[in-house]
Design a protein around this nucleic acid. Structure first.
Lengths: 205, 205
DNA sequence: AAAGAAGTTGATATAATGTCAAAATCTTTT
DNA sequence: AAAAGATTTTGACATTATATCAACTTCTTT
């Protein structure tokens, strides 16, 4: 028999892998990225030190990326929301809602995002993962700005779409981290409203 | 005799300290923050490992902060440029110039800022140092926005000064790091112009 | 000249990472 | 069903970095 269900080794392996992921999840949230050692993870997962490396050759970074993957997917869903500009008013509504979705997601995953923030500073590979997302998001916004330019909706023709897009995104991102680190007491609504208004008033006629 | 110049021990100590700082400066720029080890610094400075810790009990972090101090002072000079709003036009000019000064400074100190960026992610104390600067700068901008509000120059009364200030500062900061990391080919002028225009058009009547 | 202070030295304790050969467990082949 | 082969587990080991500290050297004061 060649069925997967019959292969006890694969099953045992998958079980170890899951125990490692689940333990790591708890430990990361409790102790942060740096202070969660492979040794601690292996003990909590009730497995040997070396086992962690057979399942995650990339060590802690790879474990964490594995944990972050599903959350990142949800961020991509927001970044990929399609929008085609037709008017300043519509743009305001869309922008406000988009920022709000983004920050609500941050609120929902506050604990792990705090760890993510720490990990971005400590791990090059994790940093790259986030950079890819950032660049994607900014490109989408910039595309929309270009479209608005072509349609004659913007104040000026000479603006640099990427820089303007960055102005919106980077500030939203900063507030995302502030929410994750609990270093702001501003409401998601307040932030979305202010950013969206400034963006739209600055950009559109 | 109790003169400082006569105390050979103090002199020797100060000499060691300077050799450590100068060696560290070169090594940080060459190898980055993490890969510049205390061991390497002590060897380059032609001193013993332990000597580094007598002069810098805080280790690498303290050495780096020592190096950054004079550069941070120059950033504070820009943050402390006084400006009192009287009109939208004046604000545009001031904002544009302020951002430009900021980014020019980044360009001037590109190499060490790259290390600084890495160090912020790795050292809590270095991170705090920068945070203090950031909060200072944002407060200054926010004060000006409040003033503009009172003078009836802004589009709306209901805006949150801190968030709007953040929009300007955080984007400027991001481009500062991009310049340090050489991850943008945009001109300082282009960036300043775009940010200043968006800021002023978004905020003022 | 002796006592004391300041700075230097490098060995040592500690802690984390990643690797690997041997062992254990399970599957396939003969 | 025994042997051979494949997969996973194990924990000891090599490596590397940090921070500490007692002994030592150098200089100053008594």
């Amino acid at each position: 028999m060649n069925h997967q269900q019959m292969d006890k080794r694969k099953l045992r392996g998958e079980n170890s892998k899951q125990k490692i992921i689940q333990s790591a999840k708890l430990l990361f949230v409790e102790h942060g990225f740096k202070d969660t050692t492979i040794s601690l993870i292996s003990k909590t997962a009730e497995t040997a030190y070396g086992t962690v490396y057979t399942h995650f050759p990339g060590g802690k970074d790879e474990i964490f990326l594995n944990i972050m993957d599903e959350i990142l997917d949800r961020f991509y869903l927001i970044a990929d929301m399609n929008f085609v500009v037709t008017s300043k008013e519509e743009s305001l509504t869309f922008t406000r809602n988009n920022i709000k979705s983004f920050l609500d997601l941050a609120l929902e995953h506050q604990q792990i995002l705090k760890v993510f923030h720490e990990a971005i500073g400590l791990s090059h590979i994790i940093n790259q993962k986030w950079s890819t997302f950032v660049n994607n998001y900014i490109s989408k916004i910039a595309e929309n700005i270009e479209l608005a330019k072509v349609r004659g909706l913007t104040r000026e023709e000479a603006i640099d779409s990427e820089i303007i897009a960055g102005m919106l995104f980077f500030t939203g991102e900063k507030y995302m981290w502030k929410i994750a680190l609990r270093s702001t007491n501003k409401e998601v609504e307040t932030i979305s409203e202010n950013l969206a208004k400034m963006y739209v008033n600055g950009l559109y006629k």
